[in-house]
C-alpha cells in the first residue's frame, strides 16, 4: 500500500495516527511536515494489535533522523498511542517524488523551489533541469552551489528578480 493510500485509510485509529503525524514538523525545514515530505511510509498494526509507524530517512547522514523519531514517539504518546512502535526502513530509498502536492506548495511559499520531478536521477554529467524561481516564477536561474544549508538543498540565484533561493534537490 502506498503512503498516499495509507493516509486515506478508513480505519479510525490509523486516521488519528496519520492526523497526529501530520502535526510533526521537519526539524530542518519547519514549513513542511514529515507527512508532506513522504518520510512516513506506513501505519499498520503488529500481531499484538499495537500500531507500527514506519519512517524512512531522507539522507543517511541526516542529523534530523533521530530527532524525527523522537518527535514521532511524542506525537503518538499525545494522540493516545503509548504502545506504538516506530520503525526505520531504508528500502526502497526515500525519493523526492514522495513529497506531496501540499508539501510542494508549502515549500514554494517558503521560498524553496520544490524538486523538479524525475530530474537528475542517474544522470551524472547531463544538463541541469530548469528550476523556476519560487519568488517571481522566472526560469532564468543559475546554480550557485549543488550543496546548501542542509543536505537536501542546493543554492540557486534568479537572474530576473536577482534574489538567491534554495532548491530542494532531487534524490
Amino acid at each position: 500500500m502506498t503512503a498516499a493510500a495509507g493516509r486515506n485509510t478508513v480505519d479510525p485509529r490509523h486516521r488519528r495516527i496519520w492526523r497526529a503525524l501530520a502535526e510533526v514538523e521537519d526539524p530542518e525545514i519547519p514549513y513542511v511536515t514529515i507527512v508532506d515530505l513522504g518520510i512516513v511510509r506506513s501505519v499498520a498494526d503488529d500481531e499484538a494489535g499495537d500500531p507500527v509507524v514506519c519512517i524512512t530517512p531522507t539522507y543517511t547522514g541526516c542529523p534530523a533522523t533521530r530527532l524525527i523519531e523522537l518527535q514521532v514517539r511524542a506525537a503518538l504518546d499525545r494522540a493516545g498511542f503509548p504502545h506504538a512502535r516506530v520503525e526505520t526502513r531504508l528500502s526502497p530509498p526515500w525519493t523526492t517524488d514522495w513529497i506531496t502536492e501540499e508539501g510542494r506548495r508549502k515549500l514554494r511559499e517558503a521560498g524553496i523551489a520544490p524538486p523538479v520531478p524525475g530530474a537528475g536521477r542517474g544522470t551524472l554529467f547531463g544538463a541541469d533541469p530548469e528550476i523556476p524561481c519560487p519568488r517571481c516564477g522566472a526560469t532564468d536561474t543559475e546554480r550557485i552551489s549543488e550543496f546548501g544549508s542542509t543536505a537536501c538543498k542546493a543554492l540557486y540565484r534568479c537572474r530576473t528578480c536577482r534574489e538567491p533561493f534554495e532548491y530542494f534537490k532531487c534524490l
Binding site: 543517511t60 547522514g61 541526516c62 550557485i144 552551489s145 550543496f147
Partner: peptide, 17 residues
Amino acid sequence: LEEEMALVNIALDLIGQ
C-alpha cells in the same frame, strides 16, 4: 564558503553511510 558546505555535506553523507 560554497565549497566548504559541499565538502562537509559530502562528509555528512559518508559518516551516515
